Simulated assay, not measured.
Amino acid sequence: MEMSVIIESVTSLFIIILVGVYGSKRNIITPEVNKALIAILIQIALPFMILSSFTFTYSDTVKSNVINTFYYSIIGYILIIAVSHLMLLPIKNDKKTILHFANVFTNTGYVGFPILNSIYGPEGIIYGSIFNMFFVILLWTYGLMLFRGDSEKNDFRNELKKILTNPSIIAVCIGIIIMVSNIKPPRAILSSINSIGSITGPLSMIIIGVILSNTKIQKYLKDWTLYYGVITKLIIIPGILYFLSLLVGTSKAINTVIIMSAMPAAAMTAILAENFDTEKEYAAVIVSVTTLLSLITVTLLLRIIL
């Protein structure tokens, strides 16, 4: 069951990536158009997707697991960041930034949620949404700082202003209010939010396809950091989280964090690399390779932890 879901999700991703490649090769999506697509993705589609992820409800029977997932997600991200920093010490310059970002931020939405749904049903989506909440918060704070570098970290006030006024952070704040207050938006508004947010996944894959269409993949096949980064991302980090989980005992909450950490690199790895002009081709290759190889690694992981 899980294997078929993984294959279906990954195959879908690559088909959409090929659409982006086709659009670029046919000059339908020019560099200028691609920049506009990135702006639409970051400024409009993604904030709406974030809002939609907060509009869930849960019964009292899963309330304790929701609370546990909250704490385990925080611990999980701390461990992922720490392990990633240690593992990437041999790598320097911008490639280290790309690999670290890819390790921390995984494809929770387009691959992670379908897998959780196949394992735990709608309950799994709720736990995944808790993990995804921290993904969003960290993405638009810690993630942006990784790409902006030290030059902008020095201006704390300016940095803080950019973070707080980011559309995605505003969406997170509104989403938390909706979740905590148990507000139920009118059906028409909820439908609109979900519809706009649903274009985030396909749009991000099309953008990656455009980037890949102009990438000479062959030159990266001789780059040892590619293989080292993929092994760290898909095997070492999830493996460490799994073995640590044995010390406290397995549960749906813990398994959710482990499964989400094992997902391939998030599409935002390539999107932000393109946006900040930082090893954008390398980032697109990392996203594509981890997505393809996750067919094997995620399947093996599920066989072990379930």
Rank of each mutant, 00 (worst) to 15 (best):
N117Q: 14
I189N: 00
Y228V: 09
K92S: 15
N132Y: 14
R157W: 07
F70Y: 12
W140Q: 01
H85N: 07
E281P: 04
I271H: 05
T57R: 15
P114F: 02
T250L: 11
Y120F: 14
S204M: 04
I235K: 01
I240P: 01
T225S: 15
E159K: 14
V5A: 12
S192D: 02
N117F: 14
G197Y: 01
F105A: 07
L301F: 11
A45W: 04
L302E: 10
P167K: 02
N166M: 03
T291A: 15
I217T: 13
S118T: 06
V287R: 12
L293D: 10
P122I: 00
L246C: 05
I15R: 02
F70L: 11
V210S: 11
T30G: 03
Q43R: 13
P264Y: 08
L301C: 11
N103I: 01
N275T: 07
T141W: 00
I240F: 02
F101Y: 14
T57G: 10
L293I: 15
L190Q: 13
I126Y: 06
S52K: 14
I126R: 07
K63T: 09
L293E: 10
F131Q: 08
T97E: 06
T250K: 10
M179V: 00
T291Y: 11
G128Q: 07
L139I: 08
I199K: 04
D60V: 13
I17Q: 05
N93R: 15
F147W: 04
N154D: 13
S73T: 10
I16V: 14
L272K: 05
K95Q: 14
M179N: 09
A270K: 10
I237G: 04
W224H: 13
N34S: 11
K95L: 06
Y227S: 06
I7Q: 09
F70T: 03
G128D: 07
G149F: 04
A82E: 01
F105W: 09
Y110L: 10
F243C: 12
P186T: 02
A171G: 03
K35M: 00
Y72D: 05
T97S: 11
Q218Y: 08
S12M: 11
G121S: 05
L18K: 01
T291K: 05
E281M: 08
L41R: 02
S151F: 05
S204I: 03
I235F: 02
A82H: 00
E281H: 15
G23M: 07
I240W: 05
A188C: 08
F156Y: 10
Y58D: 04
I42E: 09
Y127C: 03
A273I: 06
W224Q: 08
I178H: 05
P167E: 01
G229T: 04
F134C: 06
N65Q: 09
L246G: 02
I67K: 11
Y227Q: 06
H85Q: 12
N214Q: 13
I74V: 13
K161R: 13
I28S: 00
T141F: 04
L51Q: 08
I169V: 11
